[in-house]
Design a protein around this nucleic acid. Structure first.
Lengths: 369, 369
DNA sequence: TTGTATGCGTTATCAC
DNA sequence: GTGATAACGCATACAA
């Protein structure tokens, strides 16, 4: 048999006060006299009392939990982000509920239900594509102001968004290759519907144009951020007539498998093919050669998103409209990029001389003009 | 302003029945007549009613949530496991709360509180080292029977344990190298305190002995499963006097960085050094050369653990003592292992001939005799 | 099969 | 500063 756990009433009895006083000792200790507060805490200690969350939640209409919506939990890119979110949220008394937005089952309805039945107070979504069923639930539960985007986002919803400066990242990548002397630069994209893929791709196109570089149609290969896509993209790009000398991959996963497939097929990296990724996942530093890439501060993204949500939950930050916070990106030079050996191609003059930079470096690319 | 969400009373009014009937329609639909059940569901539809979880939890003394305790959420090894756990748990109406057991803060107390305040119904822990504070909370909340180990475990607690056959995996790894002709085999371990590291290391030692192979002391290098450890281990092992020709790494992360460092230092893999890992993480198939490794069925481990916990929560599986379920492991041959080129060493006769196998292959190594 | 009435454990609203 | 008491929304024992 199991002794029933002590309730607030038991504590009150032991302390010789009312239940209301015990409750206050827990939630607003300042409003009690020194003496009674001590009595209550002693009684709590003596009885081993713990507040019953369900009862508290029912009474306060709060849940003490937030939902983190991850597209594909199996993708290791998200683990560092999730970790830092968890750190700050749990440090602030919130439990973290994890959902996978790409799960085959009725996950959309499950997310919606969380809001409709009051089991979460807010959400951080790493998925830029918010389902209509989720949006409807958020509105219905009056929870729209307790949602923040992280990494991905959607312009459709005027919600806070913590993100890397993807345009700047892509620009740094292209500029790096150009500075090395590359003039035929390919790109492996993410999924068409993905906002990050869109940003990186369009910045790549713009930046090549700014450098006066042509992009052959078959230099842009559709990917999906995954390892498998990188290998397939390598097959495609190595078969192209006018082979590029450098490639910018929209994720490190694709870049790493791109490099591996190149070497497997006897194409040297970086001598015959320079490769630059995006993300700076841990593996990037430990591959051979080390992967040149654009670093995203993943734990920073998670932390900022969690802090932003906490501010919302506290009722601060009632700023209307999309509140965008940029997390820094940086070029990390490692071993997969180098000047191209083959400069026989379309470079009019001396291909090895880095062309001048048409525009300034400082201006964040993502920010609206 | 926001209209108050409909309660069970509102539904009852619309349906023209009592609140008890509405409640029954939700929890035991069979006990209602066809007609009233239809009426109730129509009313639910009409009002947009959703049950309030906090109220239900308070009343039923359940939480509808389970806790998954992960050692280092940032480690991508766990993401696939977490994903499959999430699939089956959420499909069965449970929310998944994630905690990081190695988080610096007061995470131990946070986990304990979850049980003491009734906010979770059970736990799957991927961390074999259960803190005493957690154990105390589990006993106090009478929750010890609602805990299952996954991947790691502790013999100290007679709880269900879903695990790979680590001994067999290590044995397959050693046998593979031996069959290729290696006679000097090194090992990079996990942390000393880790049960998986212990199992793999002792099986490695036993199996080498069974093959009549000596192990020089400096062939066993302390690691910690991480990428960084693999690179350091490579430095150590490449500097050894009587250099091994093959190495068994206790994780793929270490194996991959081991290979990278070897190649960085001009040591060819697999020609000069064969490397085999453990886990079969996705990257193993996309590195160059592909990493030979021992596959763990990560999503299977997560699924089995979730199912085991569900059975416990349903009150089934009241089997006393440790209930061990083995998930299969398998040798995956890729490109980082090959016969050793250098056979000048201590092999008495023809080093390239695979030695006979002293014992049978079938017997699972982990299982008690 | 359905309705009535009570209580789950806490916090908020009043009084004092 | 503290105490009595009424909700919070639901599920269930019991009665019908």
């Amino acid at each position: 048999m199991q002794k029933a756990p002590p309730k607030i009433k038991d504590v009150a009895q032991v302390a010789g006060v009312s239940t209301a006083t015990v409750s206050r000792a827990l939630t607003q200790p300042d409003r009690l006299s020194e003496a009674t507060r001590a009595k209550v805490f002693d009684a709590i200690e003596a009885t081993g009392y713990r507040v019953n969350q369900a009862a508290r939640n029912l009474r306060t209409r709060r849940a003490g939990a937030v939902l983190v919506l991850v597209p594909n939990l199996g993708n290791p890119f998200f683990s560092a982000i999730l970790s830092s979110m968890n750190d700050v949220l749990s440090a602030n008394g919130y439990s973290v509920l994890v959902f996978d937005s790409q799960q085959p089952g009725a996950s959309e309805q499950a997310v919606a239900d969380c809001f409709l039945n009051g089991s979460v107070d807010g959400m951080i979504t790493l998925d830029g594509n918010m389902s209509t069923i989720t949006a409807k639930a958020l509105r219905s539960a009056n929870m729209m102001q307790n949602v923040v985007f992280c990494c991905e986002w959607s312009d459709q919803w005027p919600l806070p968004s913590i993100r890397s400066n993807n345009g700047l990242g892509a620009r740094l990548a292209v500029d790096h290759l150009v500075a090395l002397g590359h003039r035929r630069i390919a790109h492996v994209t993410g999924p068409d519907c993905n906002i990050l893929a869109q940003m990186r791709k369009s910045a790549y196109i713009d930046r090549c144009a700014a450098h006066g570089l042509d992009i052959a149609p078959d230099w842009i290969v559709q990917g999906d951020f995954s390892l498998g896509a990188g290998a397939l993209a390598a097959d495609r790009i190595l078969a192209v007539n006018s082979r590029p000398t450098g490639v910018f991959c929209a994720s490190d996963a694709m870049a790493l498998s791109f490099v591996a497939r190149c070497r497997q097929r006897g194409v040297r990296v970086p001598e015959d093919m320079s490769v630059i990724g995006f993300d700076d996942i841990e593996m990037a530093a430990f591959s051979e050669p080390g992967l040149t890439t654009i670093r995203q501060d993943r734990s920073g993204l998670g932390r900022l998103a969690a802090q932003e949500l906490l501010a919302r939950l506290r009722g601060e930050q009632k700023t209307e409209g999309a509140h965008v916070i940029y997390s820094p990106v940086a070029l990390i030079e490692r071993g997969t990029t180098a000047p191209p050996l083959d400069n026989s191609a379309d470079s009019p003059a001396n291909g090895r001389t880095p062309p001048s930079k048409p525009t300034e470096f400082q201006e964040p690319v993502d920010k609206p003009a």
